[in-house]
Amino acid sequence: MGFEKFGQVGYISQTKVAPLISYLQKGVVAGTRCKNDGKFYFPPRADCLDCRKSDMEWVPIESRARLVTFTQVFFGPPAFEQSTPYTLGLAEFENGLRVFAPISKDLDRDELKPEMELVLRPRHVGEGVFYQLEKP
């Protein structure tokens, strides 16, 4: 329980990685690391793909990421209508992992370019917590 707080509209409430919510509430974006073989996952996974063990620890993720691509959404689902236009991005961390996240409204669409440096930071909106891509 608790994961419904993730994002602007949470569709899922129950998952083994729900502790992400308390990390985000504390201002930390975290992934999971397999205690058996050290493999790191972001977004967090409860189960290691490499060794199939499910003994994970939470580890903060570096915040710097390079923008891969983005779009500004003008036609959103009903629950997002009030927020349009909003921008969604895909960014890559130095370790090669990627994150799909909204891009801060502080960034103008004209400023956005694939390859630019951004940072991933936790955000609160009402009851919800999530992360977004912001100016470094």
Binding site: Q8, V9, Y11, I12, F130
Partner: peptide
């Protein structure tokens, strides 16, 4: 639905 849809 876990990691992307919540952003619209």
């Amino acid at each position: 639905v876990m990691w992307e849809s919540p952003f619209g």
